[in-house]
Design a protein around this nucleic acid. Structure first.
Length: 550
DNA sequence: GAATAGACTTAGGACAGTGTTA
DNA sequence: TAACACTGTCCTAAGTCTATTC
């Protein structure tokens, strides 16, 4: 990576796009060419397929690209107008092929003339297999490989990442300026106490700023975390009023208000994210509540014996799929039908709503209230309610832990926190099951022995037979306890197959609820929080007693 | 009012290190 | 003690939300 002296790539892309539009504006009015207007997701114009000229000059990134209607590139042309990503790929392929042609032998040049006719499957398979092979290497094999690479290439594998000239540091007014490494200087020394970052620089791919910030265990982050949960707790005092408010708004004369009310209902009921607008083509096509499109929901008047069911299916943050069917109030259902009227699948469901508008409205309802507070609020409330429901005095420690994990899991499901199923899941589950089988037959066998011992003692009434009987009873109790533990373990494992508990634990659950639960049920905090988590939640561990209520 | 910048939180995957088991 | 499974930590991309600029 080079020192970032090139222009801002975001701006560059924007300019390129403007160039395309400029070209298109001219092209569609060109003499002798009849263009038809095509409506798609706003004022997008594109020529219908049958009217495309034999060759279209396509201006992009400073070079001409010829699109011929007979090829897939026509689709690419449409895609440019409708879906940026496709064309990015097309351009990549074009550039790649051009560069490849440069290094081809004359014979290859003769044969390889069309990238679309090239089949790379075998090569791809070869490298996938190689990667798998590398992954399956033993520790020793990996070490040997590493030594071999060092021997072959030497230790000269350098990559110039960033120079100190690019870094801005942020320090206290009285603090001495830390000395940059020899031959370097800071880009800027700032004294800004209104922000928390210590250093920042501009990353060279998208031109975004990167920050160095304090650890979650720091006092500063701890206080922020505490504040976050206090805002969420405050919502409890307002939530009934807010809920009554949005229910009332479902009947509003204004479409804008109805949309806001239905969106807020989803955010509250389903813990959906706000869903900011994203730059099209810049990143994956993911959505949240406000950016839902018509194609992301299906309405069922009746489904599985329930009325007014909304079926959600969309990709959320990190392209994690959200699939859920929910029965909603009749008014919500009717409103959704209304919002979807005369719209294409790709159109915005809430076309009169944005996250900025929604958050402004929320802040008027309660100071500090934003869409994401509902997620924190509902997650923490769910944990508290589930813990209350699932924990019983008579439970053993493993059973209490299962109850805790189940409560945590309920939150993770609500927030749609998923993980990839571990590769070894089936195998380790199988191992656990065979352990359970083994333990069961052991117990069965032992019960027989116990029966014999009872018989012997009854017959003899001898002290030594009593000792044997007691010992056997004790052992059986031990075995049964072990079996219970294994059963609990298997249940927990199965239920947790595809669910990630860490995200909610770390970001959504007021740690004081957990600490209070530990204190109330005599479970050590170490059982639920590891060392790092205990450091992060030190404030809560010190603060919360067994009676804390969120 | 929309677009953008800036600052911060939230997110799942990778992988090294640790624990468990045969 | 080796093999395997699991956990903790790191990484940084992908979000949210507010302030500023156009």
């Amino acid at each position: 990576m080079e020192n970032s002296e090139t222009e801002n790539p975001k701006k560059r892309k924007k300019q390129d796009e403007q160039e395309v539009w400029k070209w298109w504006e001219e092209e569609k009015h060109a003499e002798g060419v009849k263009w038809k207007t095509l409506q798609h997701n706003g004022p997008v114009l594109a020529p219908p397929y049958e009217l495309l000229p034999k060759s279209v000059k396509f201006y992009y990134a400073g070079e001409h690209m010829v699109l011929s209607p007979e090829t897939e590139e026509v689709a690419g042309f449409y895609a440019k107008m409708l879906d940026h990503e496709y064309v990015t790929k097309t351009i990549f392929n074009t550039n790649f092929f051009k560069d490849w042609r440069k290094v081809m032998t004359p014979e290859e040049k003769e044969v390889i003339v069309d990238l679309n006719k090239c089949n790379f499957k075998e090569i791809a398979e070869y490298y996938t297999a190689k990667a798998e092979e590398k992954k399956n290497m033993t520790k020793e094999e990996k070490l040997v490989r590493k030594d071999f690479i060092i021997m072959k290439d030497g230790n000269l594998n350098y990559c110039k990442i960033i120079t100190k000239f690019d870094i801005i540091i942020n320090i206290g007014h009285e603090a001495c300026v830390p000395k940059p490494p020899e031959g370097h200087k800071w880009k800027e020394v700032r004294y800004d106490s209104t922000v928390t970052w210590l250093a920042c620089w501009v990353e060279n791919i998208l031109g975004s700023t990167k920050y160095i910030m304090l650890n979650p265990s720091s006092k500063l982050k701890g206080e922020k975390d505490w504040q976050k949960y206090e805002v969420a707790r405050k919502l409890y005092q307002h939530v009934d009023r807010i809920r009554n408010g949005y229910m009332e708004d479902w009947k509003s004369k204004e479409m804008r208000v109805r949309q806001r009310a239905v969106a807020l209902y989803f955010i509250d009921k389903l813990a959906l994210r706000a869903g900011n607008e994203k730059e099209e083509g810049e990143s994956a096509d993911t959505v949240g509540c406000c950016s839902l499109r018509v194609e992301h929901i299906t309405l069922h008047d009746e489904r599985d014996g329930k009325e007014f069911v909304v079926e959600f299916d969309f990709l959320g943050k990190d392209s994690i799929r959200y699939v859920n069917s929910v029965a909603v109030e009749k008014r919500v259902f009717k409103n959704l039908k209304l919002f979807m009227e005369n719209k294409q699948p790709g159109d915005d469901l809430f076309d009169r709503l944005s996250t900025t508008v929604l958050n402004k409205y929320l802040n008027d309802l309660m100071e500090g209230l934003t869409a994401k507070v509902f997620r924190t609020f509902n997650a923490s409330r769910t944990l508290q309610e589930q813990l209350e429901l699932l924990t019983k005095e008579s439970m053993s420690l493993p059973e209490k832990m299962l109850a805790y994990n189940r409560a945590n899991r309920a939150v993770a499901i609500l927030c749609n926190h998923q993980r990839a199923i571990p590769k070894t899941f089936d195998k380790s589950m199988q191992n656990l099951k065979s352990k359970i089988d083994e333990k069961q037959s052991q117990i069965k066998e032992f019960k027989k022995e116990l029966k014999e011992a009872k018989k012997a003692y009854k017959a003899s009434d001898a002290a030594k037979d009593k000792v044997v009987l007691d010992r056997k009873k004790k052992r059986l109790a031990q075995l049964e306890d072990q079996l219970r533990k294994l059963d609990v373990q298997a249940t927990d494992k199965e239920e947790n197959k595809q669910i990630a508990l860490g995200t909610s634990k770390l970001n959504y659950l007021d740690p004081r609820i957990t600490v209070a639960w530990c204190k109330k049920w005599d479970v050590s905090v170490e059982k639920v929080y590891n060392k790092t988590q205990r450091e992060k939640f030190r404030w809560a561990i010190e603060m919360a007693g067994p009676d804390f209520i969120f």
